[in-house]
Amino acid sequence: MHIVVCTKQTPDSAAKLTVDAAGNVSWGDSPIVINPWDEYAVEEALLIKERLGGNARVTVISMGPEAALEALKHAIAMGADEGIRIWDPIFEGSDTLATSYVLAKAIEKMGDVDLVLFGKSAIDSQTGQIPVEVAYRLGFSPLTYVIKIAELDPAGKTIIAERLLEQGRQVVKAPLPAVVGTIKGINEPRYPSFMGIRKATRAQYPVWSATDIGADPAKVGAAGSGVRWTRIFSPPTREGKAEIIQAETVEETVRILVDKLMAEKVI
């Protein structure tokens, strides 16, 4: 069984972000890390491989410039077998329409993929659109918001997944190959081991270009995109500090609070 995990690099979730007038985002001294949601996808791939007695191969791919190596290295350190970076200068400026095209072409090139795993979304651009778009392009079963893979039958080529929707859990049975978008709660991602980190440092990370994956230049980068980002800015800051309510007794304090909330017409 061949499992592909798609990942990307993001600033650490604790980073304080600033943006300049030109719209360049910076995150100070905070490190670039694997997108936190993607750790669930890597972990799930490793758990599947372990359940199949090692009878599976886990390839992790990332479309991005050199900084994307951080994400690939983390996945290899966790236990993935191989990391491939997909990059070409003409990919610059791709929206999800173009990015999903590039990832789908790379997966197509591999030819033998049974399962493609994603994190729910990237914590930076936060669209969450790539998993379903890649599935749709490849004609793979589209399984997003998966909180549990209840059954995976490589011989029978089927998967049963539980998807977390607003009203509860939908159970879906679908054929392989499939795209699975994982969410937090599906597992507890492991920390990279010392041996894993050593392996990740020594590993080779091939780069596949547009030509390598047979991508049509008209379908990538800004030319292949539908959405254009026009401006990035900080949200308006909230005014100052809270009004602290403090009366003689607990009862009096909550009574004043309720008065204020009723005046605000929020209750």
Binding site: L17, Q126, R228, T230, R231
Partner: peptide, 15 residues
Amino acid sequence: PIYAGKLLCTCTVPE
């Protein structure tokens, strides 16, 4: 919202 609402962006679908 992007970066979990720490920043905002504006987008168009120009063509």
